[in-house]
Amino acid sequence: MNTKALTAITAILVFPVAVMAGPDEENLVINGELDMTSVTKAPAHLENLDTIYSGWHFRTDETQALQIDDFDNPAMIFVDQAVDLFATVDGAAGESCASCHDGVESFKGLQASMPKVDAESGKLVVMEDLINRCRTDRMEADAWKWSGGEMQGMVALIGLQSRGMPMNVAIDGDAAPYWEQGKEMYYTRYGQLELSCANCHEDNWGNMIRADHLSQGMINGFPTYRLKQAKLISRHNRFRGCIRDTRAETFAEGSDEFRALELYVASRGNGLSVETPAVRQ
């Protein structure tokens, strides 16, 4: 770490609040029955971490409680809305998602392997791409806005079908070049503060940054309901926020850069349960 970055990070880390250091030891069990893997051995490709933790472990008891019961979880109202949307006809073709897909349960397992390389185009695709492709090409309807309520509700509903399954994105074969690109971004220092994702989420997880308890920056719970915005937040929106905080220009939601970063960040969480939709501060 160069001295400039060191100064920047020590300036924003607030060590005296040591009481909350480290992840907590509780187990994440949802609805009293679904045991989640929220702590596990780091995947082999991760050189600098031995153990990976879900962001849930870094939140206060009150925030954690909102995620352990589906009724208390405010994200579920948006999931409910998506259930209705799934059956709503839209677009010139006169179809709804349900006209072609045999129930949203048929997407079980999909989230655990996203992002993935699309066999036809050879391009890396994320869940939002799959949904919008059906909307524009198959329903002849307008694409949904990336971080809009409809899109993130649907991403959450489809992700929920895989809740509890271990994240397992492919990083080799066709995916390798995208994964390398994402990894490179993860270690690139952005902005006036010259901080990389790794400076915060790999070198300083468990510490307090200003008043926030820093996690490993995992995305296994996305889209997450954030108390701050009181709505579902997309992965790319979170990436933007983190880069903006280093006072850098950021990439756009839905950009190829963020697709690659999403693949790499997802792969850092390989082995953690899909938690969608999680609740965060």
């Binding site: 924003i12 926030d212 983190c242 905080d245």
Partner: peptide, 8 residues
């Protein structure tokens, strides 16, 4: 009430 610092 803490001042949320980071991460958008």
């Amino acid at each position: 009430v803490t001042i949320g610092g980071c991460g958008g």
